[in-house]
Nucleic acid binder design. Structure first.
Lengths: 373, 373
DNA sequence: ATGAAAGCGCTAACAC
DNA sequence: GTGTTAGCGCTTTCAT
């Protein structure tokens, strides 16, 4: 039977939930002071092994769970991490969120998620909530930085991580995605299949990250000696609707490309939809390549060939960067930039261009990488 | 300039983050006691309006944010809600999560998410974390209940919400989804288009919820006088792979149905993939209907007609149920069962059956509901 | 090595 | 109506 607890401060289960056992209950049960219990729990090496055993035994018997709130209150560290995304409905994010959570919890942190939805009132309240909950650091994973948010966050000086770009301030970490390499892989995959007329649907060019991706595409094409005519360069919005509209423009123009590379997967999916409405077939008549490798990509018909920006490495880097900022003597406390690699994933939305020899022979193209889906 | 703070307990910004202003700073600035500040902040009506104004002014000037941890510690309520899902990668969940979060935060709660991944060690640690953080209640949104989890949770007696079914215990709330009505709408939509040969791909029949859905299908078919032959009833697994396999079995059998109704969207998407590999076309040759209306559904080619189980109402009901359990004098404190409605969403994976008059005339079928995507 | 006690920031009971 | 004060559960000096 569990010892009945009775001292002035904690009148057993009266106003609290049953099961809410405090450090005092453990102390009493083990016949030691609460300080010793605290030390044992926190594995302070100086506690007498014998006492420690007694404490752990007592903990087990009364079913004690340290109260995180109280801990946070005194230690000043909540072990709470904020994760801000632009919109969680955007199919790119759930995976990021998942990875981030897995890693965070494995390292003893909890995650508070928030999406700004590009709404400044929302962002405002989100910030307040994170601050009130005393988060130890915040990862801002909104590609395309939202200005007020940044300012708000930077005022309070605490660990912060951004993607791609961010103000070069103390305690601000930046995740640098290697767009160039991933997009080069995409271009070379298409070129290897025999494509020369490769169009590019970009993201909204007033944002930095889409511009970088477009640059990377043009450079990769130049590298292999292909000139891209202006009519094969269209601007999208990084949404499915934008992809549809952009693809339709491409379809209307005279010189139809045999392949289309897209600045992100949602755009590529839009392109797929636009093509689906015509007599053309993907990949027989036109190949499509995306960027991101969102979960959705593998479910498309046909499954989408795309450049994977690894959520896992994005999340891992974000957390490591945050911890580097939070923990004073973290090994990488000085590092401010964190590289993120990208990698093509070949599925079935790419094939030989129409009219090419292998295509006429109706053979399956050789696939450099094994399809994932 | 902000008043410099100096009293024995809070030596200004020494070991805490700058920006970490406490109630004492506000009190000093406003020339009142901390109790008055607390009252003003909590909008206790008895505070002198004049003093309240001074307090709010001071709060504004020093940039005070009440510390949630401290609040939780004394009030015994964390304003934290746990949300447990089986796997957040399952495309159904991100939307649920989002809705849940939106509603929770709008009502002053924060959400801690966890996915069990059907892994009991994970579930164990998840539970410990939730308990340590002192969540006020937990919503268990794993269709197909996981036994240990339930037991663990039920031991501690605090507000709990399940979907479909759960132990009939005090403080346990259940969200009852109205599968019958949704599936009837699906069946009637197909019947109205002229389909008679409608197959059904169920979920794993050892689980309760899939069984209920299958029952609902059979009943709806009986209602309109159609007998379903056994060969048109196949079992899937509520995954894409299961959907592919089940559809392939249907395709191999002699009597090809003109429409397939699926127990969930992932199954329907699998069916779409299986059909895509054949010369048959959706919806010209065969119509497909899903269930859930996950985000993905509208992105399929063709966009999937499906029965929507509203995430919004699911989330809303979960939160209301939780609050009813948490707050002693909530208006619906007694309610234990919460109905969730369903609703067909017609997109483009359904059409007249092949060979029917309207199909031969190549006319677009009339659409009872406006497509969403 | 251990215990007593202060105090993290806040709310609520109690006094005035 | 307002201030004083005792804790919420814990960590961390500071004595011992």
């Amino acid at each position: 039977m569990i010892a009945s607890v009775s001292h002035s401060r904690n009148q057993s289960s009266e106003r609290k939930r049953p099961g809410s056992v405090s450090i005092r209950d453990v102390a009493q049960r083990a016949g030691v002071s609460i300080a010793t219990v605290s030390r044992a729990v926190n594995r302070i090496p100086t506690v007498d092994p014998e006492l420690a055993r007694r404490v752990w035994k007592a903990i087990d018997e009364v079913g004690y769970l340290p109260n995180t709130q109280a801990r946070a209150l005194v230690s000043g560290r909540s072990h709470l991490l904020g994760l801000i995304v632009s919109e969680i409905t955007n199919p790119f994010f759930p995976e990021l969120v998942q990875e981030f959570e897995n890693l965070a919890t494995a390292q003893g942190y909890e995650v508070l998620i928030g999406s700004t939805n590009y709404d400044s009132a929302r962002t405002e309240s989100l910030m307040r909530r994170l601050l009130q909950r005393n988060v130890d650091g915040v990862a801002v994973m909104t590609f395309g930085v939202e200005e007020d948010l940044v300012k708000k966050l930077v005022e309070r000086e605490f660990p912060l991580v951004f993607v791609d770009a961010g103000p070069g301030l103390p305690n601000i970490h930046v995740l640098k995605v290697d767009y160039a390499e991933g997009i080069r892989q995409g271009v070379q995959h298409l070129a290897a299949l025999g494509h020369r007329k490769i169009a590019f649907i970009s993201g909204p060019l007033e944002q930095r990250s889409p511009r970088v991706r477009r640059e990377a595409f043009l450079r990769a094409m130049t590298e292999i000696g292909i000139h891209v005519p202006a009519e094969h360069l269209v601007e999208g919005t990084h949404t499915m609707e934008g992809g549809i509209a952009a693809m339709e423009r491409l379809l209307e123009r005279g010189d139809l490309p045999t392949a289309v590379m897209c600045s992100n997967d949602m755009t590529a999916i839009g392109a797929l939809h636009a093509i689906y409405r015509t007599p053309l077939k993907v990949p027989q008549d036109i190949s499509v390549v995306g960027f991101d490798d969102i979960h959705l990509a593998q479910f498309m018909l046909p499954p989408l060939t795309t450049v994977q920006m690894s959520c896992k490495s994005l999340a891992a880097a974000a957390i490591e960067a945050l911890r580097a900022g939070i923990e004073p003597d973290h090994p990488k406390a000085k590092q401010k930039e964190w590289p993120i690699s990208t990698q093509i994933v070949v599925r079935q939305s790419t094939a030989f261009p129409p009219g090419s020899l292998p295509a006429r022979m109706n053979k399956e193209p050789a696939r450099p990488t094994k399809p994932r889906a």
